Lab assay of single mutants.
Amino acid sequence: MTSCHIAEEHIQKVAIFGGTHGNELTGVFLVKHWLENGAEIQRTGLEVKPFITNPRAVKKCTRYIDCDLNRIFDLENLGKKMSEDLPYEVRRAQEINHLFGPKDSEDSYDIIFDLHNTTSNMGCTLILEDSRNNFLIQMFHYIKTSLAPLPCYVYLIEHPSLKYATTRSIAKYPVGIEVGPQPQGVLRADILDQMRKMIKHALDFIHHFNEGKEFPPCAIEVYKIIEKVDYPRDENGEIAAIIHPNLQDQDWKPLHPGDPMFLTLDGKTIPLGGDCTVYPVFVNEAAYYEKKEAFAKTTKLTLNAKSIRCCLH
């Protein structure tokens, strides 16, 4: 018999989150649709729960009410004593943790798909938090293969000092899905179709896995975050240069030392320094102006996964 890495157990509980950011409308629209008619997301033997994560922000069509829901799922915020004085999103995070967690427990949901849009030209993107997770690498390989020839990129946010504390991190297997470009507060049919297909293929993978299909060893190309880059700023902290036209919409493309990065209003080009080629992502993302992030630098690498098969009882 072929030796293989056996994944822990079959997958039982899956959640699909929309509206973690209330103005990213593809996930909101799909989740609302699936709450009314969820036939397309159901798979035999699998509990799939669509869920609106930040209903107040969705109602106002804004990213958040008090603070970013997708950055506060750490033990400090989840452990705060519940009171009306807490920011709305912290209270909501505790409610979500109660419903789908608790985080880092045996009772937490197996998989959470968190649906997002970006204003950046990132196409279909899967966000991975753990480079050693054979199950998710296999799932992402399946999704990428199923979507081809449509490109699907994998963004690895594993980093020693950049801690995200994402909404989906309460699950055993957290999956971020990011599709763009799409303006905030807008629905685009092409973007919706791409996100819908990503979810379909992900659920198909889980179904095949649960039925005992063995997935042979595989490898995927990923883009691992190195650092986030702020806009150049003046002495008052105001933005002093904008994304250069040569960099705009060039997510995932190589940016070499000396290539144009920013452009000042008086026409001066600010190039990339250093001696390493990087791959920019979230270029000129609207939501990241407040976070002082013009783009993120990534490096390209390959992740390998062992063969996996479900432990059938």
Rank of each mutant, 00 (worst) to 15 (best):
T2C: 14
C4Y: 09
H5K: 09
I6V: 08
A7G: 10
E8C: 10
E9N: 13
E9K: 10
Q12G: 12
K13V: 04
K13S: 10
I16Y: 01
I16A: 01
T20A: 04
T20C: 08
H21I: 06
G22F: 07
E24Q: 13
L25T: 08
G27T: 01
V28D: 02
F29N: 09
F29S: 15
L30P: 00
V31C: 11
V31N: 00
V31P: 00
H33S: 14
A39E: 13
I41L: 07
Q42T: 10
T44G: 08
T44P: 07
G45E: 06
L46I: 10
E47N: 07
E47H: 09
E47S: 12
P50D: 01
T53N: 06
N54Q: 04
R56K: 14
A57Q: 05
A57V: 04
A57F: 06
V58I: 08
V58T: 10
C61A: 13
C61I: 15
C61P: 05
T62N: 14
R63Q: 14
D66N: 14
D66C: 06
D66V: 04
C67E: 13
N70Y: 05
I72S: 10
F73G: 10
L75H: 14
E76C: 09
K80S: 15
M82P: 11
E84D: 15
D85R: 13
P87V: 13
Y88N: 08
R91L: 09
I96C: 09
N97V: 13
H98G: 14
L99S: 14
L99E: 13
F100W: 07
F100H: 06
D104N: 09
D104M: 11
D110C: 04
D110L: 00
I111V: 10
F113M: 14
D114H: 07
D114T: 06
N117P: 01
T118F: 03
T118Q: 02
T118M: 06
T119A: 10
S120Q: 01
N121F: 04
M122V: 08
C124Y: 03
T125P: 00
T125E: 01
L128A: 03
E129C: 06
D130T: 04
D130N: 09
S131I: 06
S131Y: 07
R132E: 08
R132D: 10
N134G: 06
L136H: 03
Q138P: 00
M139D: 00
F140S: 05
H141G: 04
L147N: 02
P149W: 02
P149T: 04
L150F: 08
C152Q: 01
C152S: 05
Y155N: 09
E158W: 01
E158Y: 03
E158G: 11
P160R: 15
P160S: 09
K163G: 11
A165R: 12
A165P: 13
A165H: 11
R168G: 15
A171G: 13
A171C: 09
K172H: 08
G176M: 15
E178S: 08
G180V: 00
P183H: 05
P183E: 05
P183Q: 05
Q184Y: 13
G185F: 02
V186A: 09
L187E: 02
D193V: 06
Q194N: 08
Q194H: 12
R196A: 05
R196N: 04
K197Q: 11
K197V: 11
M198V: 15
I199P: 02
H201Q: 05
L203P: 01
L203N: 01
L203W: 01
D204E: 05
I206Y: 00
I206W: 00
F209T: 03
F209W: 15
N210E: 05
G212M: 05
G212H: 06
K213S: 06
K213G: 09
P216V: 05
A219Q: 07
E221T: 07
V222A: 14
V222D: 00
E227I: 02
V229C: 07
Y231E: 01
Y231N: 01
P232K: 02
P232T: 03
P232N: 02
D234P: 00
D234L: 08
D234R: 11
E235I: 15
N236W: 07
G237E: 06
A241M: 05
A241Y: 02
H244T: 03
P245D: 05
N246E: 07
N246R: 11
L247I: 10
Q250P: 01
W252V: 05
K253H: 10
P254E: 12
P254V: 07
P254R: 04
H256C: 15
H256L: 11
P257N: 03
P260R: 01
T264M: 13
T264L: 06
D266Y: 05
D266W: 05
D266E: 11
K268P: 03
T269K: 15
T269V: 12
Y279T: 05
V281D: 00
V281G: 04
N284K: 02
A286R: 12
A286T: 09
Y289A: 15
K291M: 13
K292A: 14
A294F: 02
A296P: 02
A296H: 09
A296T: 14
K297T: 07
K297F: 15
K297M: 15
K300C: 06
K300L: 11
L301S: 10
L301C: 09
L301P: 01
L301T: 11
T302M: 10
T302K: 09
A305V: 04
A305H: 02
K306Y: 08
K306V: 13
S307A: 14
S307N: 07
S307M: 07
I308L: 10
I308M: 12
R309K: 10
C310D: 05
C310F: 12
L312P: 15
H313N: 10
H313Q: 07
